[in-house]
């Protein structure tokens, strides 16, 4: 196991590569998903507000 993490002496180069790749993946996922959620919330808010207003205006 220690040998696996040692990476033939190149641990300082191999693991940061994989670590950064993980960061990029997580970063892209996090940013995209939070943005999608935020937009969904905004759409819901605007639509409920419009539905609330409609009966008053229609009557």
């Amino acid at each position: 196991m220690a040998e696996f993490f040692y990476m033939g002496g190149y641990a300082a180069f191999v693991w940061p590569s994989y670590g950064l790749a993980a960061l990029v993946f997580i970063g892209v996922i996090w940013q995209s998903v939070t943005d999608l959620r935020a937009q969904k919330r905004l759409v819901d808010k605007l639509e409920t507000r419009r539905r609330d207003r409609k009966p008053e205006g229609g009557a």
Binding site: G9, Y10, V14, S17
Partner: peptide, 13 residues
């Protein structure tokens, strides 16, 4: 050596 494993990230990127 083991640095080839960096390539598995580098080339797909």
């Amino acid at each position: 050596g083991e640095t080839v494993r960096i390539m598995y990230i580098h080339v797909p990127s």
